[in-house]
Each structure stands twice: as C-alpha cells, then as structure tokens.
C-alpha cells in the first residue's frame, strides 16, 4: 500500500453516505405508542404484585383470621373465559389481516366473553362483600380489591376500546379501520388478558 492511498482509509466527514433514503417506519406508530404504554402498565402491575408480597411477608397469618376464602374454582372458570376472549381477539386479528369478513364477528365473540368475565367478577365481588371481605376489613381485603379492581378497570377500559374497534369494523365506514389502530387495541387486550393469570395465581392460589 502506498503512502498516498492512506488518507482515503481514514474516516473523514466526506465518508458519510451521500444518498439519503426515505425513512421506512420499523413499526406502526400506534402499535409502538401502545407498546410504550404497556411498559408503564407492566411496571404498574409489577408494583402492585411487589406491594402484595411485601405486605403479605410482614404478616404471620395469611389470609388473616376471620377473613373469607376466595372463590378459587369459579374464578378458574372465569380465567378460562378471559383467556378464550384473548384467543378470539387473536383470531379476529388474523382474519382482519387476511381481509376475511368474519373478523368482526370473531371480535364480537371476544368482546362478549370479556364482558362476561367482568360481570362475573362483579357478581363475585358482591358475594365477597356479603361474606365480610371489604376493602377496609384487613390489608388482605384491601389488597384483593386493589389488585383485582385495578385489573377490572383495565378490562373495562380495554373492552371499551375493543368494542369501538368492533363498531368501526362495520362495512361502509367513512374512515375505515386501519391495521395499525386495530392491532394497537388488540395489544392492549393481550396485555390485560395476559396479566390476569399471574394475578390469579398470586392472589387466589398462592
């Protein structure tokens, strides 16, 4: 190698790529925004879980004396309902991407199952309150209503978004539903469905 060719090997300002290429988004903006939101949500539920574990580890008897036991079996059934709602939402997404007309019906099933979960949870809450488990009866009751309630609020919010998506899937919309928007809403639903088994095992079983 001659000495003259050496400067060409050094990195100079001129060695930048001269031809700019238009940006191609790596991921749809709505999906990315939802992903960031879910990061916060994960940390939120992680905090509730750690609060639960810390308070629980500070007490000798759990559940505290005189507090009712939680309905493990009926809630297991309800868990299955919620998980199948998540599966239905997934199938609906596949059908929507494939341009199939059944996407709206499948999403409707998903919304219906999710609503059933929420109503059944509410029914169980009424029963638990009747048995004397209230939000102030003990930290046990407080944590139960805090964690399951926080999840319930998320189910409600995500269901509203999902129902809106379902509505927008009706043919003949002025602004048809986009893949990105529909997919962002489904991501929220997957999160809400996915976090439930963890909470169920933690609060009901462990």
């Amino acid at each position: 190698m001659s000495l003259e060719s050496l400067p060409a090997l050094l990195v100079t300002a001129e060695s930048y790529d001269p031809a700019p290429v238009p940006q191609r988004p790596l991921i749809d903006s709505r999906q990315f925004g939802m992903l960031l939101f879910i990061v916060t949500e994960v940390m939120f539920f992680a905090s509730l879980v750690s609060a639960y574990l810390i308070i629980r580890s500070g007490l000798e008897e759990w559940p505290p004396w005189g507090q009712p036991r939680l309905p493990v079996w009926s809630t297991a059934l309800n868990t299955a309902v919620l998980l199948s709602s998540g599966v239905a939402a997934y199938l609906s997404g596949r059908q929507f991407r494939g341009g199939s007309g059944t996407a709206q019906r499948t999403l409707g099933i998903s919304v219906a199952l999710g609503t059933f979960f929420l109503v059944f949870q509410g029914y169980e809450w009424v029963q638990m309150l009747g048995f004397g488990l209230t939000v102030t009866s003990s930290t046990y009751g407080g944590l139960f209503y805090l964690i399951i309630g926080a999840h319930g609020v998320h189910v409600l919010g995500a269901l509203i978004a999902l129902a809106y998506t379902w509505m927008r899937m009706t043919p003949g919309q002025e602004q048809p539903l986009t893949q990105g928007g529909a997919s962002a809403v489904r991501m929220l639903w997957y999160f809400v469905v996915g976090v439930w088994p963890i909470l169920y095992v933690l609060v009901y079983l462990a």
Partner: peptide, 19 residues
C-alpha cells in the same frame, strides 16, 4: 423512556396512599 419505566410504582403507591 426512563420516566415511563419508573412511574408505574409511583402510580400504584399513589393509588394506595389515596385509598
């Protein structure tokens, strides 16, 4: 990004404190 990853615990704590 740090804010979004760290604020969850504060929200959870704030809800509990409010309760």
């Amino acid at each position: 990004i740090m804010f979004m990853a760290s604020v969850g615990p504060l929200i959870a704590g704030a809800v509990m404190l409010f309760m």
